[in-house]
């Protein structure tokens, strides 16, 4: 039997959040955390969490699992359970709507702030714009982001200033467009990032790198953005 402790909060009925304990029979299998949640949900339908693809590509089920942010659907129990206990909390730093569901609007607002779309003011050719494999390779490790918010909600700078600091996820995408050979808006993009908060609240502690379920490295991308700002200033 696996002991599971889950953060519960329903704004309509609970004055304050609390941890609820369950016991689950995993039949000795190394289930994913999401499988455990599905078993719990069958037992107690009032438990709320987000889930969709269940294979780690949609980014719905980011949560804090035994103290570390991750995706429930690709986190096997063997990698997270300590002392026979699984502890599930919502991602930290953003408001909780209910149980494991957080209000991600600030996270999305930061994403929208960086103009997350290609800008190219030259007329488009009749076929695709050409891009060499080397130029395309620069987007690897950037475009794969699934917007699960595991990184940004593991970042103290984002906890303190979620309205001003873009956060690792947004900055990873900022760099994805800065480095795309097809984008012509580099100067304007950089100008919008050169304030004391947007980029420079990153102090390089790399919590984002430690938790990213897709193995991406936002800190490195932020370093590249700083270098681009430096180069454009000189």
């Amino acid at each position: 039997m696996l002991k599971v402790s889950v953060y519960r909060y329903n704004p309509e009925t609970d004055e304050a959040p609390y941890m609820q304990d369950y016991e689950i029979d995993t039949a000795g299998k190394d289930l994913m955390v999401l499988d455990v949640l599905e078993l719990l949900k069958a037992q107690d339908a009032s438990l709320s969490y987000r889930r969709s693809c269940r294979e780690g590509v949609c980014g719905s089920d980011g949560m804090n699992i035994n103290g570390k942010n991750g995706l429930a659907c690709i986190k096997p129990l063997s990698e997270c359970v300590k002392g026979g206990k699984l502890i599930l909390r919502p991602l930290p730093g953003l408001p909780v709507i209910r149980d494991l569901v957080i209000d991600m609007s600030q996270f999305y607002a930061q994403y929208e702030k960086i103009q997350p779309y290609l800008v190219n003011n030259e007329p488009a050719p009749a076929i695709e714009r050409l891009q060499s494999p080397e130029e395309r390779e620069k987007l690897d490790g950037l475009y794969e982001c699934i917007l699960c918010a595991c990184c940004s909600t593991a970042c103290p700078s984002f906890w303190w200033n979620p309205d001003k600091f873009i956060g690792p996820a947004g900055l990873l995408q900022a760099y994805r467009f800065l480095v795309d050979s097809r984008d012509t808006d580099t100067e304007n993009r950089l100008a919008k990032l050169d304030d004391p908060f947007s980029v420079f609240r990153c102090h390089g502690i790399q919590n984002c790198v430690a938790v990213c379920p897709k193995g991406l490295n936002p800190t490195k991308a932020i370093g590249h953005i700083r270098n681009m700002l430096l180069r454009s200033a000189t």
């Binding site: 695709e128 060499s132 494999p133 395309r136 795309d180």
Partner: peptide, 18 residues
């Protein structure tokens, strides 16, 4: 498909850049 590419879809590329 070309519209998608113009929108920024990061397709893999051939040596010719296509």
């Amino acid at each position: 498909v070309f519209e998608l590419e113009h929108m920024g879809l990061p397709f893999s590329r051939t040596e010719e850049g296509r």
